[in-house]
Amino acid sequence: MSDEIMIECEGLTKRFGTFTAVDHVSFKVSKGSIFGFLGPNGSGKSTVIRMLCGLLEPTEGTARIAGFDVTQQIDQIKNLIGYMSQQFSLYDELTVYENLMFYGRLYGLRGGELSRRRDELVALTHIEPYMSRRAGLLSGGWRQRLAMACSLMHKPSVLFLDEPTAGIDPVARRELWDLLFEFSSKGMTLFVTTHYMDEAERCTHVGYIHMSKLIVCGLPDELKRLPEVNPPGTKRRDVTCEHVTMAMQVLRHMPGVKSTTVFGQSMHLLVDENLPEERIREELAKAGIKQVDIRPIGPSLEDVFVALTAKMEKAK
């Protein structure tokens, strides 16, 4: 990661009629980082990506890719960026091989250069066995790999991925992220939108957009230390026990417990700093829950986003 800023937007705004899809969003992404852009459906994630790729004209504000303005210097930007859209836009009638060749040619690759780059990406994505299959007949995971390979044919410096893991099986998801880390280590800047909190945890930087506004942006660890996330006089505890949903019902109404969230076999509690762990054990024992393991934990990114969204809603 270097200090070179690859993506920069300042007061970026997009209005469709009276509806404001993106409201004065500003952030910077430096070279080689993986920027995770999170937010619920309809919050404006795709609109931001589309403005950064030059597909939509911003209503207000500016955006720059590698120093080039997206409205004024789009021609210089086009060769620098790759874009993998939500639905992995491929030509279903074309085979895997033909899709690769088409996207390569679209970016002006010819002859030896084209076939070399194609072979590189085939090796990287392991799509070799499907070369002569039509894209329309590929499964979701393979479609995603092909779409990725297609968007990388011209060696972009910045790659935009709009929900690249939506509807993909866990193995393919893991492998995609392995690839993303590899690209990032080679200096490529990645801008990824996602719904998944675990994916957000893997990013070097995250931004959270809610109701068209960028609520927070920064390094995951910094965000977890924000005072809004760690209200003074509170601590977080992980409680692992049997009958965890029943336990939650018990603890939810206990004085000193601010919030409870279940994570499979355990739950995360936000409690008063001076609430002793023994009190929690006693309360659970009353309900017949004996095997209880309590550990101190830090906030997750989800906690961060929940806390900040709640704060914003309250401010309204």
Binding site: G54, I81, Y83, Q87, S89, L90
Partner: peptide, 13 residues
């Protein structure tokens, strides 16, 4: 309709 146009529009075509 298929969304492939977006892909063409981000390219230098």
């Amino acid at each position: 309709e298929r969304g492939t146009l977006e892909q063409l529009l981000v390219s230098p075509l």
